[in-house]
Design a protein around this nucleic acid. Structure first.
Lengths: 216, 216
DNA sequence: ATTGCAGATCTTGTATACACAAACGTTGAC
DNA sequence: GTCAACGTTTGTGTATACAAGATCTGCAAT
C-alpha cells in the first residue's frame, strides 16, 4: 500500500479507469469511492486532484469529477506526440548508447522475439512495453524518459487494442529489428524515423483503432 | 479568485515558485502557507498535490513538500523536449494552416518585430510567447497545444534569462522570420528544423544559460 | 569530541463535522 | 398539459480535530 492512502488510491483509481472499470463519462462520487475503499473522503479527494492534474479525469467545481473520454481524434493526437517523443528518444539513444543500455535493449528485444514467435499477444504486449522503456532509458535524458513513460501509460489501453489486429505482432517485431539496428549502428536519424512510423498510427491502423474502440 | 480556493492557491504558489519567491530546495510548510493565505490546511494540501503532479514540487511522504531544483542539466533536457514538440507543432501548422491561424501568426510576428526593433526585451519576451502560442494553436492538435503550453510555462523563467544575452533579440527575430516563411509556404520539414534549432539551447547558448543561472 | 539513544516537539496524514451550492422533484398556476 | 418556482436533498468545499510518524534536542557513554 504505496506509502500513504492518497497515492495508493490514485494508483487504484487510475488502474480502474485505464481498465475501463470506470467508464469514460462516468461520474466519480467521492463518498461512494470512500466507502468502496474503506477510507474517508479526504484521501479520495487528494487522489482525484492528482488524477485531474494528470488529465485522466476532470473536476468541475462544485459538480464533481467525471472520467474523461478522449475520443478517437484526441487519442490520435496523443499517439502523434508519443511518436515524436519516442523518435527523439531513439535518436538520442543512438548517439549516446552505452554498454548497459545496449544490453537492456538486446534483452528486451529478445523477449519480444520469443513472444512474437509464440504468437502470444499478451506476453508481447508486456515485453513490448519493456522494450520501449529500455529505449527511453537509453536516451539518457531523465526528463524525456519521464514524459515518455507517462504518455505511454496513458496510451496503454489503446496499444493493447492495436495488438489484437491481424499480423500486427510480426509486423511490430520486424519494425523493432530495424529500430535496434539503427540504434546500434549509431544512426540517430534513421532510428528517429523508424520509431516515428512505428509508434504513430497512420492510415488503416487508425481506422482499426477506431473500429475496435467502437466495438466496446 | 479562481472558482475554488484550492485552484487559486495552486496558481498562487505556482507563480511564487516560478518567480523564485519560493526558492528551489525550499521547504513548503503547510501550516505556514495556510496562515499566509488565510485559509485552512485542506486547500493548501490540495494545491500542493497538484503542483506535485505537475512536477514543480516534490512531496515526500510524511516529510513535507520541497520546491524542485531542476538544475542546468535537467533544464537542458526540458528544452530539448520542448524543441521537439515545437518542431512537430510547426510542421503540422505548415500542413494544416488555415486563414485564422495565418492571421494570428502574422499579427504576433508583427508585434515581435516592433519590440525587437525597439530593443525592448521585456515586451519581446511577452510577444515572443504569444507568437509561439499562435504556432501551437495553428498545429490544430489540442493535445499538442496543451503539452506545449505546459512545458512553455515551466520553462518561462529560463527563457527570460536567455533573452538578456547580447544580440539574442535580433537573432531570435530573424529566426522567427524564417519560421513564418516555412510555415506559410507549407514547408513542414523546414519549419520543423528551424523551430528545433530556434528553441533548443545548443553550444554557447547553454553555457550562457548556466552562467546566468549561477549568477542568481 | 563524537556518536547513539530517548524524550519532546513539530508536521504530516486521515477522519469527521459543518456550510453551502447545485441538482432534482414536487406543487401550483397559467 | 406544460412550465416555472420553491423546497428538499444530495454531494462538494472548507475547517478543525486527532493520530501517527519524523525531526530535533539534549544527555550520556564510549
Amino acid at each position: 500500500m504505496s506509502e500513504n492512502v492518497g497515492r495508493w488510491l490514485r494508483d487504484e483509481i487510475e488502474n480502474a479507469i485505464l481498465s475501463y472499470e470506470f467508464a469514460p463519462g462516468e461520474r466519480l462520487d467521492e463518498t461512494v469511492l470512500a466507502n468502496r475503499f474503506g477510507v474517508s473522503r479526504t484521501p479520495v479527494r487528494e487522489a482525484l486532484m492528482q488524477l485531474d492534474a494528470i488529465g485522466l479525469i476532470e473536476i468541475r467545481p462544485r459538480r464533481g469529477a467525471i472520467v474523461i473520454d478522449p475520443g478517437p481524434h484526441r487519442i490520435y493526437e496523443m499517439f502523434e506526440v508519443m511518436a515524436e517523443l519516442e523518435g527523439l528518444a531513439g535518436s538520442l539513444a543512438a548517439r549516446r548508447l552505452d554498454k548497459a543500455s545496449r544490453e537492456a535493449i538486446t534483452a528486451t528485444h529478445g523477449r519480444c522475439e520469443k513472444s512474437a514467435a509464440a504468437g502470444d499477444s499478451d506476453a508481447y504486449y508486456y515485453d513490448n512495453e519493456e522494450f520501449h522503456k529500455a529505449i527511453y532509458a537509453a536516451s539518457r535524458s531523465d526528463f524525456l524518459q519521464e514524459q515518455c513513460a507517462q504518455l505511454h501509460r496513458r496510451l496503454r489501453p489503446y496499444r493493447r487494442l492495436q495488438l489484437r489486429v491481424r499480423n500486427r505482432l510480426s509486423t511490430s517485431f520486424s519494425e523493432h529489428c530495424a529500430i535496434v539496428d539503427a540504434i546500434f549502428t549509431g544512426d540517430g536519424d534513421e532510428a528517429r524515423r523508424l520509431l516515428r512510423t512505428h509508434v504513430g498510427i497512420q492510415g488503416e491502423r487508425f481506422s482499426d483503432l477506431v473500429a475496435s474502440m467502437a466495438a466496446r
